[in-house]
Amino acid sequence: MAREQKAKAKTEQAKGKAKEAAGRAVGNERMTAEGRAEQSKGDARQAKEKTKDTFKH
């Protein structure tokens, strides 16, 4: 389960970066903001998984 969540975090981060870059390229502020939000969500998920790993060992 942890690997699945870590992979999901990485995917969210990558999608967010792509969306943010696309938003900047076309000048769409909303898309840029959504990309940043997805990245933040991925960062939070990754931090949660790292915390769980720390307490596991």
Rank of each mutant, 00 (worst) to 15 (best):
49 E>W: 03
7 A>P: 00
45 R>H: 07
8 K>T: 04
36 R>T: 11
23 G>A: 06
52 K>N: 10
10 K>H: 01
41 K>D: 09
53 D>I: 03
2 A>L: 14
21 A>C: 15
25 A>M: 13
11 T>W: 10
56 K>L: 13
15 K>N: 13
48 K>M: 04
47 A>P: 04
14 A>C: 00
26 V>Q: 14
28 N>K: 05
38 E>C: 05
32 T>V: 00
42 G>Y: 12
23 G>R: 08
11 T>H: 05
48 K>Q: 05
30 R>A: 14
42 G>R: 02
31 M>H: 04
16 G>Q: 09
18 A>W: 03
10 K>E: 08
40 S>V: 01
2 A>K: 11
45 R>V: 10
26 V>W: 03
27 G>V: 09
31 M>C: 00
7 A>M: 07
13 Q>A: 11
2 A>F: 15
54 T>W: 13
38 E>A: 07
50 K>T: 12
25 A>P: 05
54 T>K: 13
41 K>H: 10
5 Q>D: 04
32 T>M: 06
22 A>H: 13
2 A>V: 14
47 A>Y: 07
7 A>S: 07
52 K>T: 02
57 H>P: 04
21 A>F: 13
23 G>V: 10
12 E>V: 03
35 G>T: 12
34 E>I: 14
47 A>M: 12
20 E>F: 10
13 Q>C: 05
12 E>M: 11
20 E>Y: 12
36 R>Y: 00
20 E>M: 14
56 K>P: 00
3 R>G: 08
33 A>G: 04
48 K>L: 03
6 K>P: 05
46 Q>F: 06
29 E>M: 14
55 F>T: 03
50 K>R: 11
5 Q>E: 07
4 E>Y: 05
20 E>T: 10
55 F>M: 13
14 A>D: 04
26 V>L: 09
13 Q>L: 13
28 N>V: 15
28 N>Q: 07
25 A>F: 06
34 E>C: 08
55 F>S: 11
26 V>N: 07
5 Q>M: 10
20 E>A: 14
24 R>H: 14
36 R>L: 09
4 E>C: 00
9 A>T: 02
55 F>P: 05
46 Q>S: 05
45 R>F: 05
21 A>T: 14
9 A>P: 01
47 A>F: 12
8 K>R: 02
56 K>I: 04
29 E>A: 15
